[in-house]
Amino acid sequence: MGAVWNIAATTVGEAIRRRVLLVILMIGVLLLTIIPSLSVLSARSDDSVTVGTMFAVMRGTSALLAIVLTVYMIPNEIERRTIYTILSKPVQRWQFFLGKYLGAVLSLLLMITLMTVFMLVVYAIFQNHHASRLLSLAQQPVMYWIEMSLLAAVAICISTFVTPLINIFLSFGVWLVGTVLNPLYDTIANNSKSIPIMKSISKLIVSLVPNFADYDTKNPLINPGQPIQNQGLYYFTTIFYGVVWIALLLIIGALIFDRREV
């Protein structure tokens, strides 16, 4: 695993220096800083609106970071010929692929942590809440990190067989379907009154596209009176679901990459 970790570490080193990622991150941080301060100025200062908007900004920024970071990772290595120097060493293609993915996941962890720290500091200054409230808010970014790791797995898997530009649209499409439409299809599939053909189509889509919606657990944080039932079990199954999807996507991606002419 030494080679995998070293490739991951260099990937992090490169990612945190990529200007386009830094610009996206800075815009995200800026928006997170502005939102709580604007709520002070508004006539109807509503904590739930502030928290909801901040999480929406963080999620959108993280998704953009995950896609932009991952879609170019393998194609860039091929274009710049770095891959040849690495693969001529005792490194197998799956190790290279896994190292790049882990590097992306670690970079996302750093970036989401930075956004979380900014968000909590600004929130604490403007909303004047207890530490326990801040701690509960910090749970959501962890779920976003898992979600973005899943999105990065989708993007890196697709990057083994399409160009980066097409990949941006495909990955974003998968995330959009998994975020917006998946819960809808899920409802149709589980409703006994639904038309059978619609049920079958919904089940197929739900099975083929990862469900990203379950990682957005901000509602109980916005409305503390409506907690998630069996919270521990919910988090465990959601994280487990993500890990299984990630493993599956990485295996498929590694198998395609292994056969690809570079």
Binding site: N6, T10, G13, E14, R17, R81, T82, Y84, T85, K89
Partner: peptide
Amino acid sequence: ISYLPERPYYYEYMTGMEILKFYGSLFG
């Protein structure tokens, strides 16, 4: 064996020593 590709690219943020450390680490 080893390979020096045509017009090689190395991670530009690394120093000369870090490049050797990175490639060395791939051999342990």
